[in-house]
Design a protein around this nucleic acid. Structure first.
Lengths: 264, 264
DNA sequence: ACCCATCGTTTACGACGTAAACGAGCGGGC
DNA sequence: GCCCGCTCGTTTACGTCGTAAACGATGGGT
């Protein structure tokens, strides 16, 4: 069960993580029972995962479910709301991830670690969906991507406050944490998932290198190998630990207020 | 370093920054001279800024320029490439920002500070465009958003290497820096720019509060004021300074390698 | 005077999101 | 047994989109 290879990424889609499955649903013409909202959202996620966001149209999603496009409108008000539902569903996978806890029963650091890896697992499982999670306008100003769920915001804040954070510190932590997850994961999925373009790669010409003139960018050329290296997992871990370290400082400083602190 | 007013945001659209202007071009039917690629891209940016990304269609952009949609195709291969051009143009505003330098002539920290604020200025000036900058698939795996320009990658790397960073450290810094900018700025524009929905707010009903049942989320309710507070500028500064601090540690540790360092 | 390159327009087509009208099927009251 | 009305998927239709292709108009070089 513990990973056989030394540098396997614990959050990669087939790593031992709990989330990342939506609904099997089988081949297009299989689960022939009735439609319903959950089935539609599951199919939409599946569809985006395999064909890309731009390929998702009401008609094609209908066809994927063995149904005409208009049938979907009985369960979903329209395409925009369908996408909102997709985002919500994907984030809700967190809720079914046994590695992620709703409360900080083993300390806030454990809580934040598990949550971060849970979100990362989701991002890696659905690289085509994550940009949607990142950029869809939030329902309220205090629900920030990528944790766009009141339940998780509530969970986050109570976990930290119960662990001794002041309300201000908990809110500040929520912001740094969101920003960290959003930046890191968006960068990570944008660099791997997408081969060359969102969806429309007609055919042939597998790597017609656009090849702008690189002679003006010698450093980029020289470091190309380094730049192409993918150390996302390690970077994620390091940045996360750094963030937790900073929070720890905030927390203990709040407990033992030192006089004459130069900042703030 | 010391700002004139105590809480004025130095990067806000009318703050003293050099970027943020594309091309005046006047009202829709004014600059009646010939079309060209630059004019089209400028108009597209302007259009997105004021009507939103979803409102940008070839036909409407044509009309905005006093021309039929098909006329645009003489200068731009298609809508996707138009959007790529928009992203490139917006990032190129950096190049015209006198506050941002291409080389680290006053030290790498000054360089990174200026660059970060330049990018932030752009993000705040074009909140509707920035998600595009953040999510468009990169041309090469080593051009990461939001600094999606070979010139700036080259500039970044040489600035750091010339300042004493090893190649590995410079590349690692590039990654952390990208991730930080991306996360923070995307969060910032997603929370402010967009009032309620991308574009289609038919009319009337200014704040028909959707109002899910908040009684299950008491902490969120209690902290709503705190959560809604916008301290983006200060947070940005703090996170940026923290990042610079981390980089400084990497840099000086590389200069004086200490024996038996437990990590790496 | 003519030609042809440049550049914007017109026309046309297939795909999209979705409103509206339309059945097929079926379970319950009489 | 009959029929009603509800649920749920289909059909048809409309306006808009991106864009291919054919078509003027215009104007400088010969």
């Amino acid at each position: 069960m513990n990973e056989p290879r030394e540098d396997a990424d614990p959050d990669s889609p087939d790593g031992r993580g709990g989330a990342a499955t939506v609904l099997p649903a089988g081949p297009p013409g299989s689960g022939r029972a009735g439609l319903d909202r959950r089935r539609i959202l599951g199919a939409a996620i599946e569809f985006i995962d395999e064909r890309g966001l731009n390929a998702l149209t009401m008609r094609r999603l209908g066809a994927h479910l063995g149904v005409e496009a208009m049938a979907l409108y009985r369960y979903v008000p329209g395409r925009e709301q369908l996408l909102d539902g997709v985002v919500e569903s994907v984030i809700d996978e967190l809720y079914g991830d046994p590695e992620v806890h709703l409360a900080a029963s083993h300390g806030w650091q454990d809580y934040l670690q598990r949550l971060a890896h849970g979100v990362r697992r989701i991002a890696l499982a659905h690289p085509e969906v994550f940009p949607l999670v990142a950029t869809r306008p939030p329902a309220a100003p205090w629900v920030r991507p990528p944790l766009r769920s009141l339940r998780w915001v509530e969970s986050f804040l109570t976990a930290l406050i119960d662990s001794g954070f002041t309300e201000e510190a908990a809110v500040a932590a929520y912001r740094s944490y969101s920003s960290f997850l959003l930046g890191h994961l968006l960068l990570e999925v944008s660099q791997k998932g997408v081969k060359i373009s969102p969806e429309d790669r007609p055919e042939g010409v597998p790597e017609a290198v656009v090849s702008t003139d690189l002679t003006e960018y010698p450093t980029v050329v020289r470091l190309e190998a380094l730049l192409s290296l993918d150390e996302s997992a390690a970077e994620f871990e390091e940045a996360l630990e750094n963030l937790l370290g900073r929070l720890e400082v905030v927390l203990t400083e709040a407990r033992t207020p030192r006089r004459g602190d130069p900042r703030n």
